[in-house]
Design a protein around this nucleic acid. Structure first.
Lengths: 130, 130
DNA sequence: GTTTATGCAAATTCTTTGCAATACT
DNA sequence: AGTATTGCAAAGAATTTGCATAAAC
């Protein structure tokens, strides 16, 4: 899991901003929003550029966007090509993968083409539920 | 499927705005955003009030919010209590139910509590795929 | 040297909020 | 009458865009 290796694999130019953002995701066990990235990153990276980076990474399958409540998209590293459930905690706002719960065998009705999937459960996570 | 009946059942006051919004959903086979509601409704209903109405309906289980790409939440009538897949077409932007594909037997890991679920596939719908 | 990404500033769009006025029960 | 909802205006937040500059290949 090396940022520059991932970038090379996807034929994306290795800029400091991209590398730093990608590192953040590699180190994180949860989904991050642009706002969280901007606040955590030490390197000064313009917000518009962060958005462009997230878009590029998603288009290349490096990140998976998770659309959830509160009008904010979070992104998470696409660890496996297998589609699985994500969970958003309404207490701590953390979004994480629940890779045990998979959705590989879903087939759509005739005529529908799948391009992207989002399986999200919102509730209380094990940590907040104490 | 009568708007006033639904409102009564949920002990919500029967205001013109709520009735008109609910009618729109009853007549619609697809999810609607606040913007779409505002443009389709003949009755002059303030945008802030539409948002408040959508929130109230969702809290009462009348509508189901669907969080999707393009930072806009759409809402759809909760026809059955069964959780099922929704589909968003990236061509025509239509969001619809695919009630054939159900998710009732998903059980989360120990400690997690489900409050709301969102199962969304994004792609090309049967109508745009011609 | 060309192409591509970034910074900056501004614009768009979605959504929420406070408060006085109004409609519902 | 009393409570809940609405209208209005303004604020807040997320996200995008144009264009000149700078960095990557």
């Amino acid at each position: 899991m090396d940022a520059t290796v991932i970038l090379r694999k996807h034929k994306l130019s290795k800029t400091t901003g991209r590398i730093e953002v990608l590192k953040l995701f590699i180190e994180s066990d949860q989904a991050l929003s642009e706002r969280e990235i901007h606040s955590r990153i030490e390197y000064s990276f313009d917000r518009a550029s962060i958005y462009r980076t997230l878009k590029t990474f998603s288009e290349n399958g490096i990140l998976h966007p998770v659309y959830g409540k509160n009008e904010m998209t979070k992104y998470i590293l696409q660890q496996t090509p297998e589609e699985h459930l994500h969970f958003k905690c309404s207490e701590c706002e953390k979004v994480m993968c629940l890779p045990e719960i998979k959705f590989n065998d879903i087939h759509l009705p005739e005529g529908f083409i799948k391009k992207e999937a989002n399986y999200l459960v919102i509730g209380i996570c094990d940590n907040c539920n104490l």
